[in-house]
Design a protein around this nucleic acid. Structure first.
Length: 519
RNA sequence: GCCCCCAUCGUCUAGUGGCCCAGGACGUCGGGUUCUCAAUCCGAAAACCGGGGUUCGACUCCCCGUGGGGGUACCA
């Protein structure tokens, strides 16, 4: 048997982090078994602007390296891969269900149904439709139609016995048929609903394993009923634990962003991203740009594999200690059997740590390629950059080392080397420059700088230490004022690196500019 | 209301009856190193939801609570 899995997003305009986890697990399972991963678009409901709403989803998956063997853009033997274009198949299935007596036309109005529902609830019982307006033959149907009623097609669920499924994650799960409602599968206008469409497609696309979030577990009986009634073989099911909110067990949702921002870690990640976005002139409106959406990470400059690796650990583990996997290892080691069944909450801090880990493995060249576009977009260099500017960026990357956690971080390290007169942080000035004696020390250091023969790390360090010694200062007491004078702020790469990158002329100019502010 | 699922440090998790007075990771705290920050090194605090069983022995199995979550749509 060839394993075939699928990810079936609705075109909503964004790729949700929980959706990615589902896609990733489907993809991993298919790749591991040498099978196929299919992307199908569940657009039965949203008819307009599908292209626009789909683009971010496709782009997000591509960016993450989750490639699909059949689906939009690549086609395949089961095309089309859009539910909106497969309606004929659903209608035929509804016909078949009607003909075989597994479904019926129902003429009840929503109000009549609602009344029954409420009565059942008031009685503390599960709602079970009386089938009062069901038409099992044409004569009855004609009578209802004469009353001006319109029919939908409902499933005629069994009212005894039970469905037992063997879920790959949860094991044996049993559902009593009598608790299942006669769900509508086709509207009066002939359009078909999700459950029918999904089952028909999974069968037509030869899907062998349905791997999806736990929210669908309760949907399984009616889908299984549809499948069995149509004579399909049931796929294997695996219901993944929900990806929950930071610090909670509730399903992560884009809508509740305001609430997540009360979570300190989440807010920190958000603000860090917004700062980068605003410097590259990217709209950072929280609706389209936030840590629940994959685009956020791409825009800010996270590494796609860091996201994948982090997400793989949400509900799955290989053993008690391995956390980092390259793509091949993850494909090899992944297994449905080791998926957890309890919800896993999305932890921005842990993602950050995983990103940090992978970022640290990058070479200067790799960082340069990823970071240069940010500097260009922020207008810090010409487009294209001059050779000198590119060289400066490269040196800043080297000097900054581990301080650059995501590609966008280059902005807050490169800017003061690339602008003529960086702004001075008032707090840093107050703390490091405006204290008594600093002016004199800076002047002494300026003199020493003029005398430095080769403007490189070693001689610079010697010059600074000599100046400090002569003045009876600790190295730090001189380093801090110099740093603020030349970079405008109190944190940054090593001071000697800063001086070397700036060069003699700029360093001296910045020191003299700072002198009036000194105590 | 009814149905289903879930329950180990703050978080992600290991644990499939004795190896566990519960292991790893992130985070937190303390310390070392350091010109700041970052990194790094060392160390610490931190959990089996409760109650009953079963068993020589339960984190592990069963039952009941409690708590959390999902579903219950002519949404997907």
């Amino acid at each position: 048997m060839i394993v075939r899995t699928r990810f079936a997003p609705s075109p909503t305009g964004y790729l949700h982090i929980g959706g990615v986890r589902t896609a990733l697990f489907n993809w991993l399972f298919a790749r591991q078994h040498g099978g196929q991963f299919i992307l199908r678009i569940d657009d039965t409901d949203v008819a307009r602007n599908v292209d626009d709403a789909l683009a971010p989803i496709l782009a997000g998956l591509q960016w993450l390296g989750i490639d699909w063997d059949e689906g939009p853009g690549v086609g395949g033997p089961h095309a089309p891969y859009f539910q909106s274009q497969r309606a004929d198949g659903y209608r035929a299935a509804a016909e078949q269900l009607l003909a075989s007596g597994h479904a019926y036309r129902d003429f009840a109005t929503p109000e009549e149904l609602d009344e029954e529902r409420k009565a059942a609830q008031a009685a503390g019982k599960a709602f079970l439709y009386s089938r009062r307006f069901a038409a099992f033959d044409d004569a009855t149907a004609a009578r209802f139609e004469a009353e001006g009623r319109k029919a939908v097609v409902r499933l005629k669920m069994p009212r005894e016995g039970a469905l037992v499924i063997d879920d790959a994650v949860r094991g044996r799960v049993e559902f009593a048929w009598e608790r299942e409602q006669d769900h509508v599968i086709q509207r009066a206008d002939g359009s078909c609903l999700y459950h029918l469409a999904s089952v028909v497609d999974d069968h037509d696309l030869d899907i062998t394993h349905v791997i999806r979030a736990e929210e669908h577990l309760s949907n399984t009986p009616r889908q299984a009923y549809i499948a069995m009634s149509l004579g399909y073989e049931l796929p294997a099911y695996a219901h993944l634990p929900l990806v929950a909110e930071p610090g909670s067990r509730t399903k992560l949702s884009k809508r509740k962003l305001a609430q997540y921002l009360k979570n300190q870690d989440f807010r920190r990640v958000m603000e860090h991203g917004q700062a980068i976005a605003s410097r590259i002139g990217m709209p950072a409106d929280a609706d389209t740009f936030n840590p629940v959406i994959v685009d956020f990470y791409r825009a800010v400059g996270y590494l796609p594999w860091a996201i994948d690796n982090y997400l793989s650990l949400l509900g799955w583990s290989f053993d008690d200690k391995t956390e980092f996997f390259c793509r091949e290892e993850l494909i090899e080691k992944f297994s449905l059997g080791r998926i957890n069944s309890s919800p896993a909450s999305f932890d921005p801090k842990k993602l950050w740590a995983v990103q940090d880990h992978y970022q640290a493995t990058l070479s200067t060249d790799e960082k340069f390629v990823a970071m240069l576009p940010y500097v260009v977009k922020a207008g810090l260099v010409a487009d294209p950059p001059t050779d000198g500017q590119a060289a400066t960026v490269r040196r800043v990357i080297e000097a900054s080392g581990d301080r650059l956690k995501v590609a966008g971080d280059i902005l807050s390290y490169a800017d003061f080397f690339l602008v003529d007169e960086p702004e001075l942080d008032p707090e840093a000035v107050a703390k490091r420059l405006a204290t008594p004696g600093v002016r004199q020390h800076l002047e002494a250091f300026a003199t020493a700088l003029r005398a430095v023969k080769v403007f490189e790390l070693q001689p610079l360090e010697e010059a600074l230490k000599a100046t400090a010694d002569a003045a009876g200062l600790k190295v730090g007491d001189l380093v801090h004022p110099v740093r603020v004078a030349i970079t405008g702020r109190s944190v940054g790469p090593g001071l000697y690196d800063c001086l070397a990158i700036l060069g003699r002329e700029a360093s001296l100019a910045r020191i003299s500019r700072a002198l009036p502010l000194c105590g």
